[in-house]
Design a protein around this nucleic acid. Structure first.
Lengths: 268, 268
DNA sequence: AGTCATTGTCAATGCCTTTGACAAACTCGA
DNA sequence: TCGAGTTTGTCAAAGGCATTGACAATGACT
């Protein structure tokens, strides 16, 4: 079913002419050139893509349905013809993010590698679209990509030797962990730059100016604290989680606990 | 004419009557019905408390500064005399939650117990106020309670034998983990009941109706999947994380890996 | 008592989400 | 080829929210 007839150009011209003459005597001062969008120029796909672009550029603040409509060159309310409400649009955005993150995810020989890759992918995608992620994290769509990811995770857990209810629990634990972590990092990055910068600076300040007597432990590592990067934190926690999983697992992973090569291997 | 919450409607009426016949006496000895809006009757404390109540009862949707003002028996804009913006109020709410969660937290003999307690406390408080938590999670206030908690966590890490930068990294990993997890659980619970119920039901449905050929791993544990509770998931992940930490730690914890007694001790 | 800052109230602005009426334009059947 | 019906874009408008500036009462301080 393709067949997009090109006869629309002429009928568009007809429409324009008609509109010009059909209008009552209301003073038409403007050369009504491009007042409207051609029918069918908006699709769910286009709208979601533009939403993502707007959110990436302007953050959560700059995102509203009126602005989205205008950015598409359409009316403020045009989006409502394709999504019943903003909430439904947000769900579609969530779906797009999951797809983007998990497209092509394949089980690897080592179940730890599989889980590690899943966590890293989700985080990468969320960090690439923090505003979109902060709006749509914790929403679930049961789309094909999501279901497939669930299957891969459970497959890894079964590969680790977990059985039945334990495999189910472990899947939820790791899956929800990945979502929670990526979502919360994205949520922080979705705050306006001022708040973010202020927060980071404030913590550095707080660490460095802490009283030795009152908070001796902070004091002891006060200079190292501001050095820790977000990537450090994520990879550290990921390693901890995977170590814990390996220990719980009835079956060792294929790489026998060798450090998983990853994007943060060079980090201190 | 708005149908304000019952309690506040009445106290507003009382206030009006009282003010009309107001005697210039001080008469501050009776705390009963002291909700009148004499000058100074609104304080940050009161406003934050009422915010929490409104959020607990009505969720994120029912929470706005106009409604908050009305619920306090005051003008729509009264809150702005105490908080420069809604954002500042949200930070104050965040502070209150952290205080509530961490009040009286003390290091325990076993550093694993200390960390476990911290994670559980944060989660409990956030789950008790999901809407408030979903608004204020990921915000940081550097209040005394927060700083103290940081010191306790770092103390636990030093107790585990981590040193310098490693202790700093581990503190961030566990602290951020606790925040991310509690925040994301709260965010889910802050969705309106309909969406929540729908989500849970949809997943159960999705699990049970999965095709064996397409998603064999899900199929294998399909009946166990809906059985997993939120508490199961949290305690499972917490156990995994603590096991991983123990393994990374240069020094064993005081209880030598004995299962930490907790609300989910029955879990395998 | 008189000055002054504080704090509650009022009126108003501009943006947001959403809805209903309307009109253009595409589809489909005769 | 034409006309009915459905989509889809546009317009106008309602009702809510965050925020602001002007105003007024009130309590503190001198």
């Amino acid at each position: 079913m393709t067949a997009a007839p090109q006869a629309s150009a002429e009928s568009t011209a007809q429409r324009r002419a008609r509109r010009a003459t059909a209008a009552p005597q209301v003073a038409t001062e403007l050369p009504a050139q491009r007042r409207g969008l051609r029918r069918g120029s908006l699709t769910k796909e286009i709208i979601v893509t533009e939403s993502l672009r707007l959110l990436d550029e302007g953050g959560t603040e700059g995102f509203s349905l009126p602005k989205l409509g205008r950015a598409l060159g359409a009316d403020q309310t045009a989006v409502y013809r394709h999504f019943a409400s903003k909430d439904v649009l947000v769900l579609a955005i969530a779906d797009r993010l999951i797809q983007e993150a998990m497209d092509g995810l394949e089980p690897r020989d080592c179940w730890v590698d599989t889980l590690t890759e899943m966590c890293r992918r989700l985080r990468e995608t969320y960090l690439a679209h923090p505003a979109a992620a902060s709006m749509s994290a914790y929403r679930t769509t049961q789309g094909p990509a999501e279901i497939r990811t669930v299957d891969v995770i459970i497959g890894a857990m079964l590969g680790a030797g977990f059985e039945g209810g334990e495999a189910a629990r472990m899947y939820r634990a790791i899956g929800d962990f990945a979502l929670a972590w990526a979502g919360s990092e994205a949520s922080f990055l979705a705050l306006d730059q001022r708040a973010q910068q202020h927060d980071r600076a404030a913590w550095t300040q707080a660490y460095l100016s802490v009283s030795r007597a009152e908070h001796p432990n902070i004091w002891q590592v006060r200079t190292e604290l501001p050095e820790v990067s977000d990537n450090d934190i994520f990879e550290t926690l990921l390693a901890v989680v995977m170590a814990g999983l390996r220990q719980h697992a009835p079956r060792p992973c294929a790489c026998h606990g060798r450090a998983t090569p990853g994007p943060a291997a060079a980090l201190g």
